[in-house]
Every structure is written in C-alpha cells, then in structure tokens.
C-alpha cells in the first residue's frame, strides 16, 4: 500500500509530466487559454491514461515485444476516440472549443511514455496509481496555468468575469507567448518546491 501511494505521489510534483518530465507540452500550451478547457483536457487525458494503462498492464504478458508500439497505439486510439465521441454527445460546447486537441491525445507523449515506461512492465494496481498520479499532476498544472492566463488575459475565471470593468485584459497572456511565459514560471516554481521538499526530507532523515 505504501509503495502504491508513493507511485501516486510521484506524478504530482516529483515526476510531474508537464513540469518535470516536460512531455506533452504542445497541447498543454494550446488549450490553456481558459479554465474550462484546461479542466476538460486534464480529465480527458486522465481517462485515456487510466484505461490505456489498465488494459496494457493486463495484457502485458501477451503483447509481443516487437509489435508493442503499434498495439499501444491501437489501444490508446480506441480510448481517445471514445472520449471524443462521448464529449461530442454530452458536452458539445467543450468539445467544440477544444477542437482538434482531443483526437491529438492519441499521439500525446505522456500516454505513450507512461505506457511504455511503466504499464508495460508493472502489475495492474501500480499502473492504476501511476496513471491517476500522472493524470492528477497533468490536470492541476493545466487548471493552474489556464487560471492565470484567463484571469490576466480575459479578466475572468471559468467564464465568470472577476476583474472590475475598468480592467483592460492583457491580451499577451491569452496568446502563445504568454502561455510560454506562464509555463516557464510554473516550471521554476515546481523546481523550487521540489528543492524545498528534498531539504525537509533530508532533515527528517
């Protein structure tokens, strides 16, 4: 149980896919211009990651090593298409605003990376905790970045105007350069946080 908890925790700060492993960045930068998109993308990713890791971990012994990549892609693509269809059916507005980035989850490095590096070598339970940790790590960063960008660049949060009417939105933050800037600040914050946590861990030991 303790090691499962540790696996789960890894993805949130220490091995955060966006801030430490720095994979799957392009869609993360593209959709984080408002909070609804950030949250939707985070949940969609977590869902695909969770089920892909479960299935691949279950079948890891029967997947021939030399064709494992095509098989991973088939499994990931199937779950991504399911998410896409379900979103179109039940959350049409969200699906519209995320456009092409949902189908692009198929080629997202985070999923491919976790499946290859973790699920294909581990039992189902650790794989579930790994996918949840990575998914949560991805989702909190997406929400945090999109909150900063939406608040400064549009004066609202999740579509609700928060800034006084006299506030003139700083467009820069909605546009790609602002995305890079906020992203960079989050990376440095995470490295600072990790350093601090390492220190307390050492002091305790």
């Amino acid at each position: 149980m303790k090691s499962l908890w540790k696996t789960f925790k890894q993805g949130i700060i220490y091995e955060n896919p966006l801030l430490m492993l720095m994979i799957g960045l392009c869609s993360a930068l593209a959709v984080t211009s408002n909070v609804a998109n950030g949250l939707g993308m985070g949940l969609a990713m977590t869902f695909v990651l969770l089920f892909s890791e479960i299935v691949i971990s279950l079948f890891r012994k029967v997947i021939p090593n030399s064709v494992r990549i095509p098989i991973f892609i088939i499994i990931i693509a199937a779950f991504t298409t399911m998410v896409d269809l379900v979103m179109k059916a039940y959350f049409p507005d969200l699906s519209k605003s995320m456009g092409v980035f949902i189908p692009l989850i198929v080629v997202n490095c985070i999923i491919m990376g976790r499946v290859e590096a973790f699920a294909s070598k581990q039992k189902v339970m650790p794989a579930i905790f790994d996918s949840l940790g990575m998914g949560l790590g991805y989702t909190w960063v997406m929400i945090a970045i999109s909150a900063v960008r939406e608040l400064l660049g549009n004066g609202s949060l999740a579509g609700i105007p928060l800034m006084p009417a006299s506030y003139k939105p700083i467009l820069f933050f909605i546009l790609p350069p602002g995305g890079f800037l906020v992203f960079g600040l989050f990376i440095s914050f995470n490295i600072w946080l990790k350093g601090k946590m390492d220190k307390t861990a050492k002091e305790r030991a």
């Binding site: 079948f59 029967v62 997947i63 021939p64 064709v67 095509p70 098989i71 088939i74 499994i75 693509a77 199937a78």
Partner: peptide, 11 residues
C-alpha cells in the same frame, strides 16, 4: 495475429 486480435478488440 496478435496485432489483428488487438485491432479487432478495439474495433
């Protein structure tokens, strides 16, 4: 055959 089986399952 392995690849085909996975594809069929996904389909």
């Amino acid at each position: 055959i392995a690849l085909a089986l996975f594809a069929v399952g996904a389909c």
